[in-house]
Simulated scan of single mutants.
Amino acid sequence: MKHRFLPLALLCGLSLATAASADNPQLQGADPHAVMIGDELWIFPTGGPGGSWAADRFGAFSSRDLKTWKPRGELIRRDQIKWIGDDGAPEHFLWAPGVATKGGKWYLYFSVGPQNPTPSRIGVAVADQPQGPYRDSGRPLVTGGKGFEAIDPHVFTDARSGISYLYAGGSSGATLRVWEMGADMISLKREVKVAQPRMFTEGAFMHERRGTYYLSYSHGRFNADDYSVHYSTASSPTGPWRYRGRILGSDARHKGPGHHSFVKTPAGEDLIVYHRWENPAGPPPFSGERQVAIDRVSYARDGRILPIVMTDGAAAPTLKVAR
């Protein structure tokens, strides 16, 4: 997501934060990548609870019930990314993390911006466990430019082929690009040319269900009420895409829901984890803190994702025990 540089203080106590007894919204933060690890749901966000938005580090949070969240400490800091200043830009920010695991290692993909005066970049760091510490790979994985903004990385491993794909891009130019990852997960093997999905702005996410590949993404401006989640489907992870519509948008109380991830719980329930603005005062552009929320996902018999209803308080889903 672009233009996140709001006038907020940095989050200094990320590793010490607590977020107990939460319902929707679950915790403060944005751009949440959610992953089930054992019986816990982990969220890797931009920022997080315990203070204002953090532009210089990443943390993670986990829960066994989607009510009490455990901080998992600091993953990596901006000053541990040695190449970050190589472009000569006066300032740099970190946002939109995504994780993947392969071969017993964990990989953290992240955006480094802003886009101007130098192109944005995507980095990757490696750890032995999901909470890190993560070690930077030593160089950017992707650099923007020529109408492409290198932001919002998401890595999906196709269970059928074993191939891992990187999806990235958006905002300026609203361009999605896809690469096949190298076996080491910190390099690119080749770019896969894809058609631009209808209504795509940023925040791509891929998941597969019953042989159908679902490419979902955000549309609109991140701090306005047109921000929303749309999706397309395909018979492969790289298209061709069939646009299927909007599934998550603003309502009377919640504005600009988006930059989401889908997750399936051990009990087989489908959830969407996303950020939203809680009843913001005045017209866009909204300011303040975005909040992470979790809601249920349902599919029609023909595989369509049904419109998602945003909930508040105890109406939010909880983790059910698998049987």
Rank of each mutant, 00 (worst) to 15 (best):
H3G: 07
R4G: 14
G13D: 15
L16V: 10
Q26A: 15
L27G: 03
Q28R: 15
G29N: 10
P32M: 13
M36T: 09
I37R: 05
G38Q: 05
E40Q: 11
L41V: 03
G48I: 10
W53F: 15
W53L: 15
F58I: 12
S62K: 11
T68C: 11
G73R: 01
I76P: 00
R78H: 04
Q80D: 12
K82E: 13
W83V: 12
P97E: 01
G103K: 10
G103S: 10
G103M: 09
K105A: 07
K105T: 06
W106L: 08
Y107M: 12
Y107D: 09
Y109A: 07
F110N: 07
T118G: 00
P119M: 10
R121V: 03
I122V: 14
V124F: 09
A127Q: 08
D128L: 06
P133V: 04
R135D: 01
G144S: 00
G144V: 00
F148V: 02
E149M: 06
A150L: 03
I151E: 07
H154G: 08
H154V: 13
T157C: 15
S161L: 12
S164F: 08
Y167E: 00
G169K: 02
S172A: 02
G173R: 10
G173M: 08
G182P: 05
D184L: 00
M185Y: 10
L188N: 05
L188T: 02
L188G: 05
E191H: 07
K193L: 10
P197S: 03
P197H: 08
G203D: 11
F205H: 07
M206L: 13
H207I: 05
E208K: 10
E208V: 07
R209T: 01
Y214L: 03
H219L: 01
H219I: 00
R221S: 14
F222E: 04
N223A: 15
N223M: 11
D225K: 15
D225W: 14
D225P: 07
V229H: 13
V229Q: 14
V229K: 10
H230C: 12
P237G: 03
T238W: 03
T238A: 02
T238L: 00
T238Y: 02
G239R: 09
G239F: 03
R242I: 09
G245A: 06
G245S: 07
R246A: 04
S250N: 09
S250H: 10
H254N: 15
K255E: 11
K255H: 15
H260T: 14
S261L: 11
F262R: 11
F262A: 11
T265Y: 00
E269M: 06
L271T: 05
L271Y: 09
I272W: 12
I272E: 08
H275M: 14
H275I: 14
N279R: 14
G282V: 03
P283M: 05
P285F: 11
E289A: 14
R290I: 10
Q291G: 02
I294C: 12
R296Y: 02
A300G: 12
D302L: 01
D302S: 04
G303Y: 09
L306K: 13
L306Q: 13
L306V: 05
V309F: 00
M310S: 04
T311Q: 02
A315Q: 10
